[in-house]
Design a protein around this nucleic acid. Structure first.
Lengths: 242, 242
DNA sequence: TTTCAACTCCCCAGAAACAGCGAGGGGAGA
DNA sequence: TCTCCCCTCGCTGTTTCTGGGGAGTTGAAA
């Protein structure tokens, strides 16, 4: 935790981030950041609505591979917890009570992760979601000190890192050319809050058939296989809010 | 734009933000921030999916009233533009081409807004969306200098301001009932990605009826009226990740 | 040990959603 | 002007989902 002394000025870090020119640089940069902050691990983990993931960081490749293979995304308390939170969170404040979570934590530590963690959720339009995580092995007081002193720097670094990562991933930015029309949004929203088609049609004062046209149109635009899928995608992409 | 000299240390500003105790303080703080940054206006504008809005800032009350009355939220190029963006944006880079946008801009300036603006989008779970905006009247070079030098401070201030505003927001009740069982999570997740019940049952290697029991159980736990509603609620509450 | 929640399986009838065909009016932008 | 998208409405048949029953095993917590 003595990395604080050797941490380059934040300006320098951010400028290097802004000046980097290729996706491969991101891995180098995050290693540099990890060393600069003097922690065991630093990770950037991006998730989109389709379940695609991208990440770079300093976790052991074996752990990353296992994480992906086992679909740990769906049980990872860090992801699940941050997904519902607005702000950066210390891992200690997450919910580790379930058996699956404890097993996950134990396995992660077997692969070299530390006992402390701090994750910053980052969001974009259309449900874009990413995590910037710092992981370390140390006792609680040291960790609390680190978080308190480095919180602001980490927020800025996470922000800039995400910005840079997005520049190299044009395909990651969802095809937003298919925005839903206002009526489609209303229709999908009503279904998402539990209305049946007939009820939704009544609420919008249109025929049920017309409502159905909106649903079908929205389904097509969202590339959804059925109505439930369409509602889920609209929610994931932030096109509707319930 | 000479406010830069009088700007208190960022630490001081953030600490005052963290220490504020009541929603009414927010208005005082943002006025102080406006003066500290030496700009004409500074505004925090929070929007949720239901069309509810909350804001504080230094725009003329007449303008705010008119904005709300006319439902300008739906045509405001700043809101529309930032909603689709990941990162802070200069108003010059927004799309002002439509007739409605130009009329809106002209009217805003009649109410005392400056010609320059810089807005920072802020997002939370469940589509929470807020804007932190700086507005000023000056020429382009001065504005560019201001943005370049103050960008990082503004990002942090926006972040902390949003965090504080959310503490006072009663509408953001956690409302997490009982958690779903692992099987229920799997079932709901598969439906959310477009599987039919039969497909989902096949994927989980269980009978369709068993799958149905999970769906019904999840529906009950989530207080949902139908399957689509259950999927929407599970997504909104971050119980599943799609 | 008992209890309880989770997991697994089966039947049936009615309600709802799906998929495909069609049509016309209106407004904004090229 | 003309095109394209949005909004509105109708019909028919097939597939799927919903909601009401009941019943057995397992494992973990009380």
């Amino acid at each position: 935790m003595d990395g604080l002394a050797t941490l380059p000025r934040l300006e320098t870090v951010l400028e290097r981030l802004e000046g980097s020119a290729a996706l491969e640089d991101m891995q180098d940069i995050i290693v540099g950041l990890r060393d600069a902050f003097g922690v065991d691990h630093m990770v950037y983990h991006w998730v989109n609505g389709n379940g695609d993931q991208y990440g770079c960081g300093t976790y052991a490749p074996e752990w990353v591979e296992r994480y992906l293979e086992q679909g740990y995304l769906r049980i990872d308390p860090v992801v699940l917890g941050c997904f519902q939170r607005f702000h950066p969170v210390d891992w200690k404040r997450l919910d580790w009570s379930s058996k699956a979570a404890r097993a996950f934590q134990k396995e992660a530590m077997d692969y070299g992760l530390g006992n402390q963690g701090y994750s910053i959720p980052i969001r974009g339009p259309n449900g874009q979601f990413a995590l910037f995580t710092v992981n370390h092995r140390c006792d609680d007081p040291d960790w609390a000190t680190f978080c308190a002193t480095k919180r602001r720097d980490l927020i800025l670094v996470a922000h800039y890192f995400n910005q840079k990562a997005l520049e190299f991933e044009p395909g990651r930015i969802p095809e937003q050319g298919q925005a839903l029309s206002p009526r489609e949004v209303e229709a999908i929203t009503l279904l998402a809050v539990g209305y049946s088609r007939a009820q939704a049609a009544g609420e919008l004062s249109i025929s049920e058939h017309t409502l159905r046209v909106y649903i079908e149109s929205a389904r097509f635009k969202l590339g959804a296989l059925n109505t439930t899928h369409a509602v889920a995608r609209a929610l994931s992409r932030g096109l509707i809010v319930v």
